[in-house]
Design a binder for these strands. Sequence first.
DNA 1: CACGATTAAATCGTGCGCGATTTAATTTTT
DNA 2: AAAAATTAAATCGCGCACGATTTAATCGTG
Lengths: 150, 150
Amino acid sequence: MTGASSLTLDQLLCFSIYSTGHAFNRIYKPLFDRIGLTYPQYLVMVVLWQEDGQTVRSIGKKLFLESNTLTPLIKRLESAGFVSRNRDREDERQVRVVLTQKGRKLQQDAQDVPRCVFEACGLDLDEVADLNHKLVKLRTSLENAADRTV
Amino acid sequence: MTGASSLTLDQLLCFSIYSTGHAFNRIYKPLFDRIGLTYPQYLVMVVLWQEDGQTVRSIGKKLFLESNTLTPLIKRLESAGFVSRNRDREDERQVRVVLTQKGRKLQQDAQDVPRCVFEACGLDLDEVADLNHKLVKLRTSLENAADRTV
DNA sequence: CACGATTAAATCGTGCGCGATTTAATTTTT
DNA sequence: AAAAATTAAATCGCGCACGATTTAATCGTG
């Protein structure tokens, strides 16, 4: 008979990532409820506040997501009145996502979300920057590895 | 008019976590496809290989999940023949999840998953341990913050 | 003992993620 | 210029997550 395993969850880096992601979720959920967004919707808005009128694909590249996820999500943002979706005149395959007045105004309401989340982290700025940098590096490695196997 | 925002995604620690989680997913997806599990199902199996016969709640505490997520997931593990679900005789409210022969055998097939994922990380053991430790610390802070607001 | 409170699972609805496929527009090749 | 290849979105199905509610068992207090 196989005895108790020696592999525990806390040895798995992927589990730390996974569970910390959920912990973040629990923090910002109430913040986003207040302004009528979900977290992935907020990310799309951040990308649009940065540069308005992007295509679905351009947004997706930044978020590492594709149209199968983004199309319905953006349609919900459209229903909520934050964006409009318009086919590109030059290339009708593409859909450009454009902020509405309401969508631009939302930026102010969402202004203090990053600070609230930062405070919940209980880390100082340097620690956050360091951790952030390491995670970006890890993500890049994982993407390269994924590309190699595919 | 509000100009371009200064807030970028790469400043957000939560986005690093979120996107790195997805990058992990892309790495282990093919590994889990091969053995007929999803990642969350694998985590449940890891917990059970560690200690068989746990209740749904006990599994949930370790994974930071609740019965609304776990019940259907474990039912799928049951359909796949990896576990059986039995009401506890002492306390009929609880359901004990017990590995089948097939579920125990799966441990061997899943044996090299952690190593494969580790290799994709492109980090050495110390770096992984360090990052892991920082993430656990962060997760703990976030949980405490969440408890305080609730 | 009884009744209200608590606890454990289960159920339901919504919104991601994502593999796979489809549709339509554009580009490349012949 | 026509056919083939490529590209961008959209669609579909499935499996999480999770808030909210329900059901059933157990516990605690009077």
